[in-house]
Computed example of a mutant assay.
Amino acid sequence: MTQAAGSVSVAPHVLNNLIALAVREVPGIARLGTSPRARSRLRGDGIALAIGADGVNADCYLVALPDTNLVDLGIAVQATVAAVIRELAGMVVREVNVYIQDVEAANA
């Protein structure tokens, strides 16, 4: 199959949505948290992106389920987000930061 000339661009809000959908599927995630307001970043529920010529920086704000190993959760989220950026969007990953803002209360 021959490749067509031209380019493919992924809109920033599409990348944000892809990341949010993928993060929600990581075991141990109760829900996405709240990303702080930052003028230079694209924000969505729990995800803040900075997209530059040298790649993508992603900040992920999360609420974990009880009895979840938070270190393992952070590592799994980093790997998932990096894969989405690299494999689905074809972009360079600069960094993926994970902020666990809370742990959901266990039901008694």
Rank of each mutant, 00 (worst) to 15 (best):
D45S: 14
C60N: 03
A108E: 14
S9K: 05
V92E: 08
L42N: 08
A20W: 00
G55T: 03
Y61Q: 03
A4W: 09
A48S: 06
E104D: 02
L73M: 05
E25K: 07
A53R: 12
G46K: 06
A76R: 15
I100M: 13
Y99D: 12
A50K: 00
D72S: 07
A105L: 10
G74I: 01
V14P: 00
N57T: 09
V81W: 02
A11T: 11
A89G: 06
A64D: 08
L65E: 08
V23G: 04
A108W: 00
G74D: 04
V56S: 07
A50D: 04
A58L: 05
V26G: 08
V77I: 04
P27S: 06
Q78F: 08
T2K: 11
E95S: 06
R39V: 13
R41C: 09
A30V: 06
N57F: 02
R24N: 09
L21K: 14
L62W: 02
V14W: 01
V26Q: 10
G44T: 09
P27H: 12
D59S: 15
V56Q: 00
A11Q: 12
S7I: 11
G74T: 06
R31A: 15
L73E: 12
P36C: 07
G46P: 05
G28V: 03
V63L: 09
T68V: 09
L65F: 05
A11I: 06
V77K: 06
A108P: 15
A11C: 01
E25H: 10
